[in-house]
Design a protein around this nucleic acid. Sequence first.
RNA 1: UGGCCCAUGGUGUAACUGGCUAACACAUCGGUUUUUGGUACCGAAGAGUCUAGGUUCGAAACCUAGUGGGCCAACCA
Length: 672
Amino acid sequence: MSEETKPLNFIEHIIEEDLANGLPKEKLRFRFPPEPNGYLHIGHTKAIGISFGLGEKYNAPVNLRFDDTNPAKEEQEYVDAIKRDITWLGYQWENELYSSDYFQKLYDWAAQMIKDGKAYVDSQSSEAIREQKGTPREVGTNSPFRNRTIEENLDLFQGMKDGKFEAGEHVLRAKIDMEDPNMLMRDPLMYRVMYAHHHRTGDDWCIYPMYDWTHGESDYIEQISHSLCSLEFKPHRKLYNWFREHVYDYAKEELPMPPKQREFARLNLSYTIMSKRKLLRLVEEGKVTGWNDPRMPTISGLRRRGYTPNSIRQFIDKVGVAKRENVIDVSLLEFCVREDLNKSANRVMAVLEPLKVVITNYPEGKEEWLEAENNPEDDNAGSRKVPFSREIYIEKEDFKEEAGNKFFRLKLGGEVRLKNAYIIQANNVVKDSDGNITEVHCTYSTDTEKRVKGTLHWVSVPHAIKAEVREYDRLFIDESPDSHKDKDFMAFVNPNSLKIRTGYLEPSLAEAKVGEQFQFQRLGYFNVDNDSKSGALVFNKTVGLRDSWAKQKPKNQNDVVTERSRSAKQPQQKRKAISVIQQFGKKYTNLPEEKQQKVKAEIQSLAKDVPYEDLEALFGTAVKKAGTRIAVMIALKEQLKNGLQRNENIDAFITKAKDDKNELLVDEANGI
RNA sequence: UGGCCCAUGGUGUAACUGGCUAACACAUCGGUUUUUGGUACCGAAGAGUCUAGGUUCGAAACCUAGUGGGCCAACCA
């Protein structure tokens, strides 16, 4: 019921308004209309979330309708994949429908349009038709076939359907206006001849209807109340309405609801691309292993990577719906999975970059099975046993011979807690001939009540099981890879987006099943990849834990991620004096008087650091921003006092200020 | 020498449709708790709402002009 307090997005406002204007709630009906020509990606999830979300909110049916009017590109495989993905996301459609189900009805209506003089058969080449269309800036010209008789049109259209013509010989066009500023209205094509096998209608048809004609009328046939799509279809709305109005005349008795199309901005995610065609290139050129590669922004890729349906739905919810172009930061998506997995994923221990620790005062051959909590966030998660022995692995980066006191992990002479086990102290190290540390010798203490700052994860060497662990980095090194006009997006592919290593895992993981998700303690969330075979597990890193330590430590040269995120985080840094003055100015008029005096003094001292040009740039500040003008005036006065020469601009600024409504400003101006 | 759409902290969305100090989330920074440098909790910084005019007692919202960005010329959807 928290929805009641949640503000509505613009589409919900429209629906509420329609409801308020008398649209019965039972008439609400939505649809998600994919073309089965590729896999769904995270961008589609927004459209899915909007329409299905509305269905849930208003308890209205939502159809899944495949817009399958181009047999050259569409396949059953994609239909199956789309259904699988939507179901996985947890949505239920009312009816599974296909535009191809309406081919006969659309044909009949088209014939009716011909009879009404609203459509005609054109017999020109596609090039000729394109030329006559004009450009966005120049109007088009009429086809020489535009004024064929109704009989001739009917006859030709029938012939098209009957397979009497070659592909490309004739098309059916709506007769609208070749001079309309909206190019879609310049006699758009309704049908083309196409001898292709359709995944559902087989070879029944050799003419296929175009998108604009089919899509809108499919909505109408299904009595969709609100037909929601992305922004690039905005210009289509005029045509959508034109077709709808004509067909409405033919069918208003059986089909009383004329649907309305509304458009929202599609989702863009930073560091990735959202175009089926471009994603296909990644697949074809071998940059990824397939549509479901865990680095892909496809739903199947995200699923394999370990993203949960709930996390994706949360993400879509948080992203919101509006009409402006946007690029969502991937960190929001990552936040959503962490939030979800934090509650559900059992904690286990795994070491990915092992360093051997020998506990010298622990008896050789001894082992203990210690109790470990599965999930502190879930009281019902229970516990398991983990084996402890004389030799364990810890993470290489958890040990340093020497380190400052901000390093909470293990160092020589220092103590650290082993998660679920004892406290150890590092005494000395063993090195190889190159000086690399190969072992750390420690002693342990059973006093686990002791307060120590750091806690490490670890795995018993003799009990550890090995597994392949795949870690992923973003697929592109550029925040917006396909927005560069001069560079192909492929130039930004991150060569290091996959890192494979061998992990050492606690033995309880031997039973892990494909798809199962875990938190590798202190590292991140991982799931079992479907490449796993019995005895040869493969894990995907879904996302790392938040790591406030990584932010502090100096950057590590081979860590692409931290380097990049570092450089990406530059906006909030040292501020110029002038911007601080502006800042003060904004608040100035709202401050109590004694605070004003303080701020004034601050501005005066800052004025010394401001180049005059910066100040002058603010002389044109809008009249209503009195505070800013006051601050500028104070700074200016200070500079004049320090020898700045008056000039025309300064005089004009002061003169104008003296006439201002704001008394504070007038006072300052007069004080000069 | 076109038409349409858009413009609010670094990012994404709000603002009861013209009315309190412009709100929320992510990101950032700081603190408390903690057997995960996680989680949780508390706090901070960051926006006079693209610019300039106008309407109004009052504008992020309405009007005008400008600036910037996006979309539109497939027998694709």
